[in-house]
């Protein structure tokens, strides 16, 4: 496969995963808001933090729902907004049309048209949820088409590398922010709602049912974090994503360095002690993991996209790891 094309489909998969994860995060957070009593402060800004971008100054000190939603969903000037990542995924798909199955292209193009035409109306909560659910469904449809029609070769490999890396990254971000910052300390006020918040974390990763099945006890913070980081079977758990990455990297030419970085990250996840849940330790772990992910990306780019020359400048999804 052409290096340039490999890079495009890798990014396409990252953007699509990013779009789906953003939609899931906003859906789950909106639900959480409905469950919490009004005197418990939920920070809308925490969602911006999860996505790893700095808060735009115009949103002010304590950004409100409307401002954050516009920033995360419809703001075309913001490269990580849902509208922007879908547009970039579609651009990458457009330049890769010659190798994508027609159904995959049509599904991605359809997602783009849907988002473009409907994002602006997604301001009110009811409409917004409907809109985001449709986005998630369409992303799943695209993944289904890819799973059912793309041969297990180079194209599939680079799609999976992009998807799994983005997914692992997103899971760690959600765990980090929700565990450490959503609820500052377990105050008496919040104690009854801790379970609800952790449930929302699981739901934002569509992991509630799988978690229930796996962990047959009351929902607890340490169990949820362990499940999302270490579970070998849940598709959005970090360990599972890393394993998939390792599989995809195994026979990649010059892939040794990237494989090494993945191995390091897996080692880190496996050896992490999560009980009792210490926020400082978790935060450090996640910082280290995100640095690992950056290294994996750099190693893949070096081995496959660069071809001796400088890497073309890409709009980074996050400003810092």
């Amino acid at each position: 496969m052409l290096s340039r094309v490999a890079e495009n489909v890798y990014w396409m998969a990252r953007y699509l995963e990013r779009a789906e994860d953003t939609a899931r995060l906003v859906i789950a957070s909106t639900h959480l808001l409905l469950d919490l009593p009004r005197y418990v402060p939920l920070s809308w800004g925490s969602m911006v933090e999860i996505l790893g971008v700095s808060m735009p100054p115009e949103l002010g000190e304590a950004p409100d729902e409307r401002g954050v939603m516009r920033f995360l969903i419809t703001d075309t000037n913001h490269p990580s907004s849902l509208v922007s990542v879908v547009r970039m995924a579609r651009e990458d798909a457009r330049v890769s049309r010659d190798i994508l199955p027609a159904e995959a292209w049509e599904a991605i193009n359809g997602l783009h048209l849907y988002v473009k035409d409907n994002a602006a109306q997604a301001q009110g909560r009811a409409k917004r949820l409907e809109f985001l659910r449709e986005v998630v469904l369409r992303c799943q449809q695209i993944n289904g088409v890819i799973d059912g029609t793309v041969s297990r070769g180079e194209l599939y490999r680079f799609l999976m590398l992009g998807q799994q890396l983005e997914r692992a990254d997103m899971t760690t971000r959600i765990v980090d922010v929700r565990a450490a910052r959503l609820l500052p300390g377990d105050s008496e006020l919040l104690r009854p709602y801790i379970g609800v918040v952790w449930m929302s974390v699981l739901k934002s990763l569509s992991g509630y049912e799988m978690y229930r099945h796996q962990v047959q006890s009351r929902i607890s913070g340490p169990d949820v974090v362990r499940f999302l980081l270490k579970d070998p079977c849940f598709p959005r758990a970090v360990e599972r994503c890393l394993r998939r990455l390792a599989e995809m990297l195994e026979d990649l030419p010059n892939g040794e360095r990237a494989l090494e970085c993945v191995g390091l990250a897996r080692q880190r996840v496996r050896s992490a002690r999560l009980e009792p849940l210490d926020l400082a330790v978790t935060h450090q772990l996640i910082d280290d993991l995100q640095r690992d992910f950056c290294n994996v990306h750099a190693a893949i780019a070096d081995a496959c996209f660069r071809y001796g020359g400088p890497l073309p400048q890409r709009q980074a999804l996050v400003e810092s790891a």
């Binding site: 052409l2 290096s3 340039r4 094309v5 049309r97 010659d98 027609a102």
Partner: peptide, 17 residues
């Protein structure tokens, strides 16, 4: 260009490739 490359199973290249 993309269409014909796809239909022929040929690589679609740019000069830089």
């Amino acid at each position: 260009h993309a269409y014909l490359a796809q239909q022929m199973g040929a690589e679609l290249v740019e000069g830089q490739d």
